[in-house]
Write a protein that binds this DNA or RNA. Structure first.
Length: 662
RNA sequence: GCCGAGGUAGCCUAGCUGGUUGGGGCGUCGGACUCAUAAUCCGAAGGUCCCGGGUUCGAAUCCCGGCCUCGGCACCA
């Protein structure tokens, strides 16, 4: 029994096209494996724990469970509609996952891979609880900027050790927090370094993007992981009522507990998968963002607890939307339900697009125009049209087809089958889908050059043979394309009188002796331009709104007194040099009239030092000094922000340095 | 700057353990056909294979140097 899993969607938001980049190919993979006669268990579920869920639930005034329920159902619905069929779709907050997680943690403790350590954590006396990192705010001891729990994110960027932050405040009630010592538990990841190097170099298979990334991390620096958190929501750490296990412990364990549940339902033994010697036939489909967890943390945990290790990790590339980096906040997103499904598009189209656009490892660009073109030119004109023209012609002129299939046709089908098998073995789903499209084109050529519309008038028997060959191709296409477009292809299989669920790739090569046809249906409906324009409008509107929100944040009105607090003066740049080790930072010496100040500015990507010297620029003089890349900055050069790039401002005419700006 | 992935015709790409005129798809242009959802088929145009060196009888393919793009980290006072 082979196990295939997908990275668990976090039950904290709706499904978007980025999710599908992983789930669709995984489903396609599983369907092809089954067509090859393999026994596969396909598992996924909702990732339900972690602080972001707790924070969001609190914001909405509901319990974490209610929030999780909502998205758990949402994802199940989306998967069903898109034909992504898991054998089991679980949730990590279920009893079975808690049980398995505690069992594994206990094993790790028994085997000596977990140790306790006292660390200082912010504690709010008013709320009477320890505060997870993102609930703490305070002052950075190094640069004085406002910093959050573990990091000076707005100031010097330093990583802050627990206890370092000054004047800690609770972000929930705003009252002063204090530091209290608390015992936490660490997983000895460092003990697995040699094991991981060997595993990643010699044992683990998968896509290069994942493996290379992980190898680099392991060789660099491994640190022990703190695996407990101060939360109520989560899996209790054994023996510690107040601590839950870190979300990245219980989430992947979901793969195991979901397998158990699936096996119960199917009368199988889960231990044959997860307690089956060193390496087991387990394949994880994931996004590039969680490579670290799946290639490093997870195998170490499994090893430490005595479980089997995954055989392969397959990571999908990133998703772009209309050529831009995917971003929910900036509006470059396609929501599966609100955008795609509500517009009434056939889910098979999106599956085809995702699988066929480019190699699994590379970036996928989603564009509505490309979507329309791929659907209309490839799915409909080439594949759908071939299927329909053959079935329609055969039904109209014969009704029943009994004829000899051309050996060249059989050879071609066999060739395509081999291509598909080889492509699936490499996780190259575009290659597999290109292969059946090639067969459709071959079919069109065969039909065209055989001219059955002429033969029907001169030689009915020969015409019948041509049709027999064409129907053989149609059957092969239905089987070969089924994993990518299950909804339409199963309807066609039914029309042709066979059960696709029991089909094998080899069946495409079994000659159809005789087939009786009824009136065929048009397999795919065209996507029209108006609909695409609508979709583009929706997206543009969303992008515009996102920009407005961004601008709106800055549009808080202030009065002149507040403005007067800003001491802005014209300064002359007298020296400029790039800061070593930084891409964006430039060290400037600026004459602001009564003194020359050192200022660090993030302009090095756009400006060269030599073009800056002598230039007059506005400088915010009374900003708190800060250190950037270890260089002190005592002021801020003002510039226009154009698509994230700075454009410097210069006075209309020569003015003396130090001139005040009002 | 560091690490990773890449740079092949308007777009997506195959080839990358070196070897006949660099394949394919979409789009474009011309033609043919009419069974079919104006679908299909045939043909054509379109490429400094990022740039510069080197190895070699021979390089898109190997080596060195550089440029650029994407992602991650650092950072944008």
């Amino acid at each position: 029994m082979k196990l295939v899993t997908c990275g668990l969607p976090y039950a904290n938001g709706k499904a978007h096209i980025g999710h599908l980049r992983t789930y669709v190919p995984a489903d396609v993979y599983v369907r092809y494996l089954r067509l090859m006669g393999q026994d596969v268990l396909f598992i996924c579920g909702s990732d339900c724990h972690g602080t972001p869920i707790v924070v969001n639930a609190e914001k909405e005034g509901i319990s974490p469970r209610e929030l999780v329920d909502r998205y758990h159902e949402h994802f199940q619905r989306i998967f069903k509609e898109l034909g992504i069929e898991f054998d089991f779709y679980g949730r990590t907050d279920a009893e079975y996952n808690h049980r398995r997680t505690q069992e594994i943690v206990k094993r790790l403790i028994e085997n000596g891979y977990v140790y306790a350590k006292e660390i200082e954590l912010a504690y709010c006396p008013k709320c009477d609880r320890f505060l997870p990192d993102r609930y703490v705010e305070g002052i950075c001891p190094y640069c004085g900027a406002i910093a959050r729990g573990d990091e000076c994110d707005q100031g010097c960027g330093r990583h802050l050790e627990p206890g370092e932050i000054k004047e800690p405040k609770c972000k929930i009630c705003g009252s002063k927090a204090e530091f209290r010592k608390q015992k936490h538990y660490f997983f000895k990841l460092t003990a697995f370094k040699d094991f991981l190097i060997d595993y990643l170099e010699n044992k683990l298979q998968g896509t290069e993007n994942a493996l290379n990334y992980a190898r680099q991390w392991v060789k660099a620096e491994l640190r022990d992981w703190c695996i407990t958190r101060n939360l109520e929501w989560g899996v209790k750490f054994p023996g510690e009522e107040d601590l839950v296990v870190y979300v990245w412990v219980d989430a992947p364990i979901g793969y195991i507990s979901f397998t158990e549940e699936a096996c119960k339902l199917k009368g199988l033994n889960w231990k044959e998968i997860w307690l089956n010697g060193e390496i087991s036939d387990i394949t994880h489909f994931i996004g590039l963002d969680i490579v670290y967890h799946h290639c490093i943390f997870w195998p170490a945990m499994l090893k430490g607890a005595g479980y089997s290790l995954p055989k392969a990790v397959v990571a999908s590339g990133m998703v772009k939307v209309e050529g831009k980096t995917f971003s929910k906040t900036r509006g470059y997103v396609v929501w599966v339900e609100d955008d795609y499904l509500k517009a009434g598009f056939n889910p098979d189209y999106l599956r085809y697009y995702i699988v066929n656009y480019t190699s699994h490892e590379k970036d996928l660009n989603f564009s509505w125009k490309v979507f329309r073109d791929k659907v209309n030119n490839e799915i409909i004109a080439t594949l759908g049209n071939f299927i329909y023209r053959v079935l329609h012609f055969a039904w109209k002129n014969f009704g029943k087809i009994e004829g000899k299939v051309d050996p060249a046709v059989m050879d071609k089908i066999a060739e395509i089958k081999d291509k598909i098998v080889s492509a699936i073995g490499k996780w190259e789903f575009k290659e597999a889908s290109d292969a059946f499209m090639e067969l459709a084109t071959f079919g069109n050529e065969f039909f065209q050059s055989s001219k059955p519309w002429d033969l029907i008038k001169t030689d009915r028997s020969k015409c019948m043979d041509v049709l027999a060959s064409c129907i053989q191709i149609v059957k092969a296409l239905v089987i070969f394309a089924y994993p990518v477009m299950p909804k339409t292809m199963s309807k066609l299989a039914e029309f042709l009188g066979f059960d696709i669920a029991k089909a094998r790739l080899e069946d495409a090569l079994k000659p159809i002796e005789s087939i009786e046809l009824s009136k065929p249906f048009i397999p795919f409906e065209k996507v029209d331009d108006k609909k695409i324009e609508e979709m583009e409008k929706i997206m543009l509107e969303r992008i515009r709104k996102a920009e407005e929100v961004e601008a709106g944040k800055k549009e808080e009105l202030i009065d002149i007194k507040e403005f007067a607090k800003l001491d802005i003066r014209i300064g002359r740049i007298v020296k400029a040099e790039k800061i070593k080790g930084s891409k964006k930072l430039m060290r400037l010496e600026v004459d602001i009239g009564n003194e020359v100040r050192q200022i660090v500015a993030g302009i090095a990507e756009v400006y060269k030092p030599e073009e800056l010297v002598g230039k007059l620029v506005p400088v915010l003089v009374n900003i708190k000094p800060a250190k950037l890349m270890g260089v002190e900055s005592r002021g801020m050069v003002l510039a226009a922000d154009v698509n994230g790039k700075p454009v410097l401002l210069h006075p209309d005419r020569e003015v003396p340095p130090g001139s005040k700006i009002k």
